[in-house]
Write a protein that binds this DNA or RNA. Structure first.
Length: 491
RNA sequence: GGCGACGUACCCAAGUGGUAAGGGAGAGGUCUGCAAAACCUUUAUGCGGCGGUUCGAAUCCGCCCGUCGCCUCCA
């Protein structure tokens, strides 16, 4: 391992040194989306954050097994016990099969994540694909006396699990005191939550079970699937802070009651996104979808914006803030472009064990970057280190001093690895002159040549006209010091 | 009402006991036919307010003010 990693464990409310269960390996489960709508900027923050975390673990040398579920049944509109199934509700509205809704939005989700540069999980298990496992878990809980059946529903008996509330810092008594009027008298205790729901007549998504036709409760899937793929006890469970209670609390209760073993060793929770200062939520209807954001900003800019604040800090989304981030990112991209022009070999591997201190002190910058990331994945601090390094690189390039042999390649590889491979904030076509191909590229180059001729003849009126007209269709020309002109395509 | 976070320059945002990172914007400069872009320099004696602990606090403690979140679906 390149370094020890310290992370903030929600369970103990303090930073702890990460010690894996199995040397060199780490198992991570992150709560995935319920696929009944397009993903919003909050999903973006959550999955980009965990993507950076996973990438960093891999960079440091861990073999990571990353599981992230897709919720395609059981998530109700009101809470774990009441309301319609979110997916089934959408399906009714559109008069389609629920699985069509699932398919549509699951694809939409992956499409958005791909654009954000989120590396796909190793497994994306779906709740409907694990009904058997969920029924088995429910049966085990009933058998062990932790759950009971009532009218075709199965509830977890919170009173039997004294640890309930530990993760979120809540007391069952307080919950009961603050609970809404309990209309379901069949529950032993108002705080009990459903692990299996009876399917009423007309309910589309249903499966046979020992308690009659029904469907699994939302919390149950994460227990069943995480333990199936990662074991009864595993290293890291992540998710949004809003799921800490009740979702994760319920997962712990179900899992530990069933196995008698600790469920998760480190809990990681990312903070929420607000929009112009207020919370974004589906019920308020003020959420910004990622597709909305992409219509305005480059996905890499969104990713950069997200990683410029800490995953445990709230993030306020506003056009101005993202624009500012985008301009900062341009500097990074520009350096990449310049290093390419200086002949950097993009394929060369970087040896991080043998970094030079001259002419840029890469050894020091690497050490600082690594320290920031290892300290609870402090991506904003890590990015700041990269920008400090950028200043040195720019000074070096601007000084006109000869670049040492392999210098451009080394600097390029350094940035490429830390900013690109780990943080994912360098788009794959970074710094390339062209954003379009073939004939369009040739046409632009033709116009550039015509403009160069006009300038040579001091016909600045024509030259400026060409520049302006190109700008009007989104092609920005930039005259270089050596007399050449490059262009970039505006998003 | 219960629980928990947070409040750092014009904006965004690191920093959890040793004397304020980074980005944007602004200002000055280099370059340029001009422009754009790029690059360089610069911008908080102070970290919501008032007390306290300490040789020393943005960092710890107390109170107050303000914002946000969870307690009901949400990443």
């Amino acid at each position: 391992m390149k370094t020890d990693i310290f992370l903030y464990n929600s369970l103990t409310r303090q930073k702890e040194k990460f010690v894996p269960m199995s040397e060199g390996k780490v198992g991570i489960y992150v709560c995935g989306p319920t696929v009944y709508n397009h993903s919003h900027i909050g999903h973006g923050k959550s999955y980009v954050s965990f993507d950076a975390i996973v990438r960093f673990f891999r960079f440091v040398g861990y073999k990571v097994f990353y599981v992230q579920n897709i919720t395609d049944v059981g998530h109700l509109t009101d809470n774990a016990d009441e309301g319609d199934d979110k997916i089934e509700k959408e399906a009714r509205k559109d008069r389609v099969d629920p699985m069509e809704i699932v398919e549509t939005f699951m694809r939409s989700y992956f499409e958005d994540m791909d654009r954000l540069g989120v590396v796909r999980p190793d497994i994306s298990p779906r709740a409907t694909g694990h009904i058997v496992e969920q029924i088995e878990l429910a049966k085990a809980l009933v058998t062990a006396g932790y759950a009971y059946e009532a009218g075709g529903n199965v509830y977890f008996d919170v009173a039997k699990f004294p640890e309930y509330g530990r993760l979120s810092g809540k007391k069952v008594d307080d919950l009961i005191a603050g609970a809404r009027i309990d209309v379901r008298s069949e529950k032993h205790n108002p705080a009990d939550f459903a692990i299996w729901k009876k399917a009423e007549a007309g309910h589309i998504m249903r499966w046979p079970s020992p308690w009659g036709d029904g469907f699994p409760g939302w919390h149950l899937e994460c227990s069943a699937m995480s333990m199936k793929y990662l074991g009864q006890t595993f290293d890291i469970h992540g998710g949004g802070l809003d799921n800490q209670f009740p979702h994760h609390e319920c997962e712990i209760a179900q899992s530990e009651a069933a196995t008698g073993k600790p469920f998760v060793r480190y809990w990681l929770h990312n903070n929420m996104v607000t929009v112009n200062g207020t919370k974004m939520s589906k019920s308020l209807g003020n959420f910004v979808t990622l597709k909305d954001a992409f219509a305005r900003f480059d996905p890499t800019t969104i990713r950069f914006f997200i990683l410029q604040s800490h995953y445990r800090s709230p993030l306020d989304y506003s056009n101005g803030a993202v624009e500012g981030a985008g301009k900062g990112l341009e500097r990074l991209k520009n350096v990449i472009r310049q290093l390419k022009e200086l002949g950097a070999d993009p394929m060369a591997e970087t040896d991080f064990d043998r970094l030079p201190e001259e002419p840029v002190n890469l050894r020091r910058y690497y050490s600082e970057w690594l320290g920031a990331m290892a300290d609870d994945f402090n991506t904003p601090a890590a990015i700041a280190v990269l920008f400090e390094m950028l200043k040195d690189v720019n000074t070096l390039i601007g000084s006109g001093a000869p670049m040492p042999a392999g210098g451009a390649t080394l600097l390029y590889g350094f940035i490429r690895t830390l900013a690109g491979d780990v943080l994912g904030i360098i788009p794959s076509e970074a710094g390339g002159g062209a954003g379009r191909k073939d004939i369009e590229m040739d046409l632009v180059n033709l116009l550039i040549k015509m403009r160069a001729d006009a300038r040579k003849g001091r016909d600045f009126k024509l030259a400026d006209s060409i520049r302006t007209e190109l700008q009007n269709i989104g092609v920005i020309l930039e005259d270089k010091k050596d007399g050449t002109t490059t262009y970039k395509v505006e998003k």
